[in-house]
Design a protein around this nucleic acid. Structure first.
Lengths: 257, 257
DNA sequence: AGAAGTAGGACGTGGGACGTCCTATGACTT
DNA sequence: AAGTCATAGGACGTCCCACGTCCTACTTCT
């Protein structure tokens, strides 16, 4: 009753061949795109899809499940299936698994998360420093103020702070990704018993970012963001799970592994 | 025989409630994490999963389909189900749909793709400029040389060029994401009848990036990357689908781009 | 007219059957 | 004895059918 009784080994390299059901998935997507169905529009019934495509309802359901997992469709029990927004929430499962799965031996996954967020936010903040609504500053200050008060709201304010900046730049994808990274980082960190962020220090760093934005200096803004993330990394290094480990060179066999 | 005969409207806001089957998905993931099954490890049979969890094989299959869509498991017909790598290929469907779906009215989705890639690659290249293997330069030069020769290989060399730099930094997630963005951009561009890249101009920009890397000047490297993407944007603007449209401010109607 | 009850549509789940694909084992050939 | 081919069995793929649950919209009663 072990995992599997046959002599399968991990070193199987044979790739899964193109599946039939993948074809169904494609057809459903094409249906949405061809008819230009907007987000929220009702999809055909499972039954009518089955008839149109010429497969059983069971196969349709499996295809729909796959699309649902990607946020491409949204299913409501007893009501119908609708076109989804393909928002970043759909990737949460993916990214969280990716972060956890090889996590036991490689805490660097957590670091990757932080690193990508830093890259995007650095550039994003630079651009916002060059051009932003005047009201933004006040909104950011309000977040910082909330962060100064300890409590569960501090984390929320932290996330809102970053989201405000990312939203300001106007790149939806970038904004959603950074939000996703924030959420997954938080979830993975909590799971590994990592450090809870220290609100006062974070507030201080955030204030520095606001100051840079006020001055309109793009490079200063980028610098402030870098320092913010430096501190997060430093805190992580002191955490229970022993920090991230060093960056390893990609291809060469010089170090690491 | 229309899309749906009932009077559903697009403005449905009711959110889908937590589904039972989502629970099954979670249990399967937990199984992988708890047993620390590495990528490629065989999963229990659908039948045994059904017995263990106490649901029908049908439900298991739907859950597995969802996980398969995210690359968390890999199913091989007639052989078994295996733990997947959760690689970025899984997101291709997601991102391509996201880019295409609102594409007809908003070509800005394509721009978002490019923009995020630029942000990540700018930062990544800066870091690589500060520290990289000496062999990297030669490898990059080889790519540039291939790009100078027109033909289908030029695009491949283009992708390899970027991938080499991203790999050098050692952040897997960043590397996979930029690769994903490249692929999806290419696919979406082709679909919209966009411009094929002009190899000589691209090669020139890439050469500038290599030069910056040789000099070890992080800021120069960032600048070179920015100029590279500027050119891609310029080319896109001249494309058949009429360019990206301007950056829109997130909330207010004040300034732009 | 308004509210409660009801019929029907649509998704959720379960169970079983059969086809297809793959591997491993054993018989057969050289 | 070693290699090749045929075969049996395991595991996924697809299908059918039935019933439960949930939601909406219509009908009916007050």
């Amino acid at each position: 009753m072990a995992t599997c009784q046959c002599k399968k080994d991990i070193r199987e390299t044979r790739v899964a061949r193109p599946q039939r059901s993948e074809e169904i998935t494609k057809q459903i997507i094409d249906l949405i795109v061809d008819r230009q169905l907007p987000t929220g529009a009702p999809m055909p019934t499972e039954l009518s899809l089955a008839e149109d495509i010429g497969v059983s309802r069971n196969s349709i359901r499996e295809a729909v499940k796959a699309l649902q997992a990607l946020g491409i469709v949204e299913v409501r029990h007893g009501y119908g299936t609708f076109v989804g927004s393909a928002g970043s929430e759909a990737l949460q499962t993916w990214l969280l698994f990716r972060t956890r799965s090889r996590g036991s031996t490689d805490a660097g996954r957590l670091r990757d998360l932080l690193e990508v967020r830093e890259m995007i936010e650095t550039e994003l903040t630079s651009r916002v420093a060059r051009d932003h609504r005047p009201e933004l500053i006040g909104e950011l200050q309000a977040c910082v103020a909330r962060m100064r008060r300890k409590g569960p709201d501090a984390a929320v304010a932290d996330r809102e702070f970053h989201d405000l900046i990312c939203a300001e730049a106007g790149f939806d994808l970038a904004r959603e990704l950074t939000g996703l990274f924030w959420d997954v980082y938080r979830a993975a960190e909590g799971e590994m018993g990592g450090p809870v962020s220290s609100a006062p220090a974070t507030a201080k760093r955030h204030q520095a970012i606001v100051d840079a934005l006020v001055s309109g200096d793009a490079e200063a803004a980028a610098h402030a963001v870098h320092r913010h993330f430096d501190e997060v990394r430093k805190r992580a290094k002191a955490g229970r799970y022993g920090g991230f480990g060093e960056a390893r060179p990609a291809v060469s066999g010089s170090a690491a592994s």
